[in-house]
Design a protein around this nucleic acid. Structure first.
Lengths: 190, 190
DNA sequence: CCGATTACAGACCGACTGTCGGTCTAGAAA
DNA sequence: TTTCTAGACCGACAGTCGGTCTGTAATCGG
């Protein structure tokens, strides 16, 4: 039972790549399963054999995308000792990554509406949000009981900034603003 | 041009109320025009006479909702002189308002995905975001070149907090966290 | 009183998602 | 080798939905 399993995995990967491209360029609603079938040369039956439905396909795409993001962030941050510096580096890296239309459309715009807020939040928790929260906690600059909520707010703020940049905003200005925002949040009490 | 115009306006209002309820409870995708027709007793032709399509109907619902929010925020804030205090009051009021599922589902979750980020942003600019930005500018606590971006980030952060509360999070903890967040952002440089 | 305009009706269309019975083949079991 | 089974794949089909189009009745402006 090897050739078959491999073929299946290859098919899933092929479909995933095509779906990622289509979801990213056209958005979830304007991407029809029909188009995915045409571009992949697969039949309806085969696709629905691998993925339970359009939203399941989207979730798989999202999962893979988030995993890739997590890898990149981890790589950019893990050799930095100081938590505050790591936080800063991670946030700036994330903003640069969000320039990618794939990330913008899939992760930032469609995900919450397609998955529903609950499933979306759970997925975020397992990926970038988890990292942010842990790092913020390690800085010790925020009271422990606020760490979770502040991490949420910070991530939301940074995501918004990323969206503005991705939408043609001035990237340098955004980066400066985010740095200032972070500095204000994390400076010791006066 | 009186009886006809009034009848039309009444019909639009009726449909708007029904659509608001349905969009709020089931979300945009899971609300079918068919259901709106059944519940309003209207025919397809009539509905499409008043609204160009499902997204136009949603936009009308969103517009009305945002207008109502704006009214309430203005009423809660306009008698406060100090901009920083007004900002604080407005933000806290907004979090309470976001407890309403109508606001949560329509304004915070579906709006960006349905309208597209661009149209959504333009609409926000005309409503709550405009107020926030103006008030933040008036505090003078943030360099002018950062006011716009900081306002965006702050609103995103507060919205996130509102979502967490609306989703069954601890409201008191969230309010405290938001106050702390705001305080950190707005305190004078050390 | 009469054309024009407007509110409304509902049959109809095309596109889409998801289902279902069935085929085929690789590899395990006999 | 032969038989059997699981899983990859197929494509016709049903059902739903958003949107269009033609027609009708009532009101308005002149």
């Amino acid at each position: 039972m090897n050739l078959k399993a491999e073929r299946g995995a290859a098919t899933r990967e092929r479909v995933l790549a095509i779906a990622t491209r289509l979801f990213a360029t056209q958005g979830y609603d304007d991407t029809s399963i029909e188009t995915v079938l045409q571009e992949s040369g697969l039949s309806r039956g085969a696709l629905y054999h691998h993925y339970a439905g359009k939203d399941a396909l989207f979730e798989a795409v999202l999962e893979a995308t988030e995993a890739a993001i997590g890898d990149k962030l981890l790589r950019a941050v893990r050799h930095i000792g100081d938590p505050a510096a790591a936080l800063r580096a991670g946030v700036l890296t994330w903003i640069e990554l969000a320039g990618d239309p794939v990330i913008r459309q899939i992760v930032l715009i469609d995900a919450p509406a397609v998955l529903g807020w609950e499933r979306w939040r759970a997925l975020e928790e397992r990926h970038s949000f988890g990292m942010l929260k842990a790092t913020l906690g390690r800085t010790g600059l925020v009271p422990e009981r606020f760490v979770d909520l502040h991490a949420h707010m910070l991530l939301a703020a940074v995501n918004e900034s990323a969206l503005l940049v991705a939408r043609g905003g001035d990237q340098r200005a955004a980066l400066e603003a985010v740095e200032d925002f972070l500095r204000r949040l994390l400076r010791a009490d006066p």
